[in-house]
Simulated assay, not measured.
Amino acid sequence: MKLYTYWRSSCSYRVRIALGLKGLAWESIPVHLVKGDQRAPSYLAHNPSGFVPTLVLDDGTELVQSLAILDYLEAVWPDPPLLPADPLARARVLAAAHVIAMDTQPVTNVGVVGHLKSAYDADQQGGIDWMVHFMERNFAAFDKLILPEGRFCFGDSPTWADICLIPQLYNAHRWGVDLSRFPRLTEIERAALALPAFDAARPETQPDAE
């Protein structure tokens, strides 16, 4: 498989983690978001939304949107399971994951903050303040949705909640979010990054890291 990715893309980071947890081999194809590679016609032919990641299967089939890709991987390679089989437990894991994937990342990504600056005259600090506000607010909600104990968000094995959390915490560190309010989340982060799949997916270890 091939993955169109960017080293600092949290959506790409999620898929890299999942591929690692499933033990799947893949090839990295970098798409430089800051330089605008995602807007090139050659890339839009793969993903018309102009986002990363795009996963190309061995038969050439292309999949987009990180959670849709995670869902495909879970269906085709169910071991190890990254979602509970019990419907209620599954819904709780998905709710927490969606707080990050739907409520937080979309409003704090580079495209949204760039538009905030260009269209509404926000300066660099204003863009950072915007990101920090949404991350702090949604980390507080996430913290209340997960279990109060366990190595990971929902027990002793990682789930989609952890896969979404760890990349967002990377962004939180980058932009100076005060994480002292969220000791449970940083404990989970330490446990996750101790696993080879999470460690190998870190932005700084990617071939296109700058």
Rank of each mutant, 00 (worst) to 15 (best):
A194D: 05
L145D: 06
L82W: 01
G150E: 14
S180Q: 11
V56I: 11
L165W: 10
P84L: 04
L24H: 07
A119G: 14
D143A: 10
M131R: 14
L165F: 05
D162H: 01
A25S: 15
G23E: 06
A101K: 04
L21A: 01
P41D: 11
H173N: 09
L145F: 11
S10K: 06
I69Y: 02
P158I: 00
L44P: 06
P203W: 08
L82F: 04
H46S: 12
D199F: 09
L19H: 00
S42I: 10
D123S: 03
W77G: 03
V31E: 11
G36S: 12
F198W: 06
A172L: 07
T61E: 12
T54Q: 10
D199A: 14
I166C: 05
W26K: 09
I29Q: 13
P30G: 07
H32I: 03
E149G: 02
I146V: 09
P84H: 07
E187N: 05
E27P: 06
R181M: 08
A85S: 14
A194Y: 14
T186Q: 10
S49H: 08
K144D: 06
K22D: 02
P78V: 11
W175I: 15
A209F: 15
N171R: 11
E210A: 01
W7M: 03
P78H: 14
P78W: 10
S118Q: 15
D58G: 03
E149P: 00
G150S: 07
Y72C: 04
F142H: 05
W26D: 02
I163M: 06
T104V: 13
K22F: 03
I188G: 01
K22I: 04
H173D: 04
T159H: 11
S9M: 12
L19D: 01
R92F: 04
S9E: 15
H98S: 12
D79I: 13
A95I: 01
M102F: 13
W7D: 00
V132K: 14
I128W: 05
R202S: 00
K117S: 13
F182V: 08
Y43N: 03
A200F: 11
K35W: 13
R184C: 00
A97P: 03
A101Y: 09
E27M: 01
S180D: 13
T186W: 12
D156R: 10
A161K: 07
V113E: 08
L57D: 12
R190G: 03
L94I: 11
E74P: 02
D208K: 12
K117P: 05
H133D: 12
C153P: 00
T104I: 14
P196C: 01
A68I: 06
I17S: 01
I29R: 13
M135G: 06
W175G: 00
S10Q: 01
L3T: 04
A40S: 04
H173K: 14
F134L: 12
D103G: 03
Q105G: 00
A25D: 15
S28Y: 06
V31W: 11
N109G: 10
Q124D: 14
N138E: 07
D143G: 07
F182T: 04
V52N: 02
